[in-house]
Design a protein around this nucleic acid. Structure first.
Lengths: 193, 193
DNA sequence: ACTGGTGTTAGTACCAAGTGCTAAAATGAT
DNA sequence: ATCATTTTAGCACTTGGTACTAACACCAGT
């Protein structure tokens, strides 16, 4: 086996550990056909921490992320008031993970998600699906802002299995987002898709 | 200091480790005013693995999660083709975390997010913000579906700093979502420095 | 008072996966 | 051949444990 040069080996070492941080020095030594000590010298030179530190880093990054990723399948924002089939209010605190790094402005789909999930929640039915939505982003929202979103049921058409909801989101009482949502619901004639 | 009973201590131990998996036996012993050995017996009885295993578990959970949580602040879906200021295509695999538990149908805001972030991406500008969106959810999308979304720039109005984009999402060539997005941009196309 | 059971503590040997250090080889280049 | 670089070896020590044995401490029952 043609042994690679130091430089090549160190480059590969970087890539290997990047790809799989759970690899031990011993495994690396075997992989590159060198001694464990050589791997350790390499790690020193490249300032790569030891296995346990690497794992810890991954775990710590994760623990932060877990908080971020949880809202993914829950209601976006916190519902603070609800009267089924009539109206609902939720609040959503915009954090730095919700904004564009470049300009600090909240990504539109988070505001949409808050409004949309509030519409789903306000409907007193087993099944509530969004059929159509017309939304307007009135003012940019930034990290640190607290968005208060109100959903008001405008009309329910039992024949068509539709509910129409008006949504308005504000920050400091200034409107930042508004939308009209047309929702499908089963109640009445129980028509399933 | 009244020392807690074994049961109380073990309950608290569980909660403490749940909350902060990075705590060592020594720290726990200090916290509960017992010996390290007692903590270890407790862990045995409760089948709580040692610190390193706990950290590793968190880290491994992460590696899975990374795929899930990354999209939160990146583009939703994977862009597979893009021609700046003209058109773009992304794919998004719907997983079980994207759907309502109750009926297995994808939450609308994920489809919106895919479309919206594709619109942001297709604009060749420093700043691109959604101003208005009219969207229609044509057919329910379910876990396992692969949503292919195409964004086509219809028009750019340089005076108004606006770009209008048509979006259509399909599953197995059947349309499931469509939308019209009005985007704000700082510069007209082809005016980048 | 003696015995038993539960709970707690102490101590030892051992492990993985390292760090930190010194020193000796092996290798390559001039 | 000589010198620097690179690699290897060896040893002591560290953390945060496991696994096991042995010793206490304390309270209850007969």
């Amino acid at each position: 086996m043609l042994r690679k040069s130091k430089k090549e080996r160190q480059q590969l070492l970087l890539e290997t550990i990047e790809e799989n941080p759970f690899v031990t020095d011993e495994q690396l030594a075997a992989k590159f056909g060198v001694s464990v000590q050589t791997i350790r010298l390499d790690r020193m030179e490249l300032s790569i921490p030891e296995l346990r530190e690497r794992i810890k880093d991954v775990a710590e990054r994760n623990l932060e992320n877990e908080v971020k990723s949880l809202p993914l399948d829950e209601v976006i924002g916190e519902i603070i008031d609800i009267e089924l089939d009539k109206r609902a209010i939720s609040i959503f605190d915009v954090k730095k993970e919700h904004v564009f790094q470049r300009n600090g402005i909240c990504r539109g789909h988070h505001l949409f998600a808050q409004a949309n999930s509030l519409c789903v929640a306000v409907i007193d039915d087993e099944l509530a699906l969004t059929v159509r939505a017309n939304v307007v982003f009135i003012q940019p929202v930034r990290a640190g802002d607290r968005v208060i979103t109100k959903a008001i049921v405008r009309e329910t058409n039992k024949e068509k299995n539709r509910t129409y909801i008006d949504v308005i989101s504000t920050v400091n009482n200034e409107p930042v987002f508004k939308g009209e949502f047309e929702m499908y619901r089963t109640k009445g004639e129980g028509e399933q898709q």
